[in-house]
């Protein structure tokens, strides 16, 4: 196997530059971890030095503690999993008190992912995070499939399915913080470019693509859905081709950078996203299987750059040959 696939560096005199500037957020490399798949960082710091990552993205934080959905919340499906966690999280107060200080002490670049029921909740969350110095960037989750949004019709529905709402939410949060602002979008739309452009017009510094794809699984013996929530969000390698395609679509219309994610397991997967037009990538569900998968991706991307004699990682962004 070539070195860039295995993560084993091959010798080259040149040291490639992995650092990037992601819409105002300085990162030592383009690799972060996806919200909800890395806890609050500390959990996986037992396995490797998490400060070596480009950034750590927190579990979605809400104003109040949330218990989340009823179990069972998880079911494995081919090459991936369906989840319906329902945004269980410690709440902003406990994050500021207990989680952020650890990340700060470690020197981690923090992307705080936030979730609220209405624009004013996002605004308050962003304000508090900035005021307390507990985030280097904000990622607004407008795309959780597992909580009901009363404003929209029936079933699991997400703010980012409606471009006008993306614009409204983004504009509000934008006015509340100077921190780099990323908007996390759902892939459960007809045309990903519409909510992506709405985020850009609302003043976002980047978009995060993709959140999970809606799915369901049924137990054929009991005829019951396998999740208590009936439907859930699909993640893992199963969704990667869908995610790469959405990044490619969005990259051709956007001026702001993209954080690409969806089934990234090894460096080659991350490079696929970069070539499709993502400026940064996030490792998600793979951390469940291999807690240090994200670090291996960093090492593998560096090895790839060396092997191909590419001086900076930004040279790969959108470098697909079509």
């Amino acid at each position: 196997m070539p070195g860039w696939l295995t993560g084993k560096p091959t010798i080259s005199p040149m040291t490639p530059d992995l650092s990037i500037n992601l819409g105002g957020l300085a990162m030592k490399n383009p690799v972060m971890v996806a919200s909800g798949t890395f806890g609050y960082g500390q959990e996986y710091d037992r396995y490797f030095d998490i400060s070596k990552l480009g950034a750590v993205c927190t579990k979605s934080l809400s104003l109040n503690v949330r218990a989340g959905n009823k179990p069972p919340r998880l079911v494995e499906t081919p090459a991936g999993l369906l989840n319906a966690i329902g945004l269980q999280n410690v709440g902003i107060d406990a994050y500021l008190r207990e989680k952020a200080p650890y990340l700060r002490k470690k020197g981690v670049t923090i992307v705080a992912n936030i979730y609220g029921h209405a624009p004013d909740e996002y605004v308050e969350l962003a304000r508090r995070l900035e005021a307390e110095g507990a985030a280097d960037a904000i990622e607004a989750n407008l795309s959780c499939p597992n909580v009901h949004n009363a404003k929209l019709a029936t079933g699991p529905s997400m703010v980012s399915q409606v471009p006008e709402q993306v614009a409204e939410y983004t504009t509000s949060i934008r006015s509340a913080t100077k921190l780099p602002l990323f908007i996390k979008l759902t892939p459960n739309v007809v045309n990903i470019c519409e909510p992506a452009l709405a985020a850009q017009e609302g003043g976002a510094n980047g978009v995060a693509l993709i959140n999970t794809l809606l799915g369901m699984a049924i137990d054929t013996e009991t005829r019951r859905p396998k999740l208590a929530n009936i439907v859930g969000g699909l993640s893992g390698p199963a969704i990667r081709p869908v995610a790469v395609k959405m990044v490619w679509d969005a990259a051709r219309v956007l001026k702001i950078p993209i954080i690409g994610m969806g089934g990234i397991c090894i460096a080659a997967d991350a490079i696929e996203f970069l070539l499709a037009g993502a400026s940064s990538v996030a490792v998600g569900s793979m951390s469940f299987r291999q807690p240090d998968a994200s670090l291996r991706v960093v090492e593998g991307v560096e090895a790839y750059l060396r092997q191909h004699g590419i001086p900076t990682v930004s040279d790969l962004v959108g470098a697909i040959r079509v």
């Binding site: 806890g39 989340g68 919340r73």
Partner: peptide, 16 residues
């Protein structure tokens, strides 16, 4: 319980 991470991160394995 069904587990993804086994280590407290995914919040998938909860019981009430």
């Amino acid at each position: 319980a069904q587990m993804a991470c086994g280590d407290g991160v995914c919040l998938g394995c909860v019981v009430e």
